[in-house]
Amino acid sequence: MHALWVWAHPHAASLNGRLREVGISALDATGWSVDEIDLYREGFNPLLVERGEADVRHHQDRLSRADLLVVQFPLWWYSVPAVLKGWIDRVFESGFAFDVPDPETGKPLKYGKGGLAGKRALTVVTAGDRAATLGPRGISGDIEDVLWPLLHGTFWYTGMDPLRPHLITTADEVDASTMAQIEADLRVRLEGVMTERQIDYRPMTEEHYDHTIRLHDSVAPGDEALSAHRQSGSETPG
Rank of each mutant, 00 (worst) to 15 (best):
T169S: 13
I139G: 06
V83A: 02
G233Q: 12
A26M: 02
P81M: 04
D223L: 13
E224Y: 12
G233H: 11
D89E: 12
D161E: 15
T154F: 01
A12P: 07
R130V: 12
H152M: 05
E196I: 10
F96I: 00
V34A: 01
L75M: 12
S14W: 04
A12L: 11
A121I: 04
V193E: 06
L4N: 06
P162I: 06
L215W: 02
F73E: 07
R202A: 13
V174R: 01
S218H: 14
H11M: 13
A54M: 01
W77L: 11
I88C: 07
G43Y: 08
T212D: 14
G128I: 10
L150Q: 08
D102I: 11
A26T: 01
A220W: 07
A131M: 13
T178V: 13
L39S: 03
I182L: 10
L150K: 03
Y201D: 04
A66L: 06
F92A: 01
G23L: 02
R137Q: 13
R137G: 03
H166N: 08
V71E: 04
Y157A: 02
M194Y: 02
A66P: 07
M194C: 09
V219A: 02
L109Y: 00
A184F: 07
K113D: 12
A26S: 14
W5G: 00
W156S: 00
D38I: 06
V125H: 00
Q72P: 11
T126N: 10
G138C: 10
S94Y: 00
V71Q: 09
A180Q: 14
D172N: 14
T212Y: 09
L15F: 10
A220M: 10
L47D: 09
L109F: 02
V174P: 06
H211K: 13
V174W: 02
W148S: 09
H229D: 11
G192S: 14
P162G: 08
R230C: 08
P108W: 03
M204T: 05
R130D: 15
T205Q: 12
G192F: 04
L69K: 04
D99S: 12
V80F: 07
Q198P: 04
W156N: 01
E93N: 01
L27Y: 03
R62C: 10
G31L: 09
K107H: 11
D67E: 15
V124I: 15
V70L: 14
L226M: 14
P103L: 04
S140H: 14
S94T: 06
V100A: 00
W7P: 05
H211N: 12
A131S: 13
I24G: 06
G159V: 01
V80T: 15
L215T: 07
N45V: 00
M179R: 14
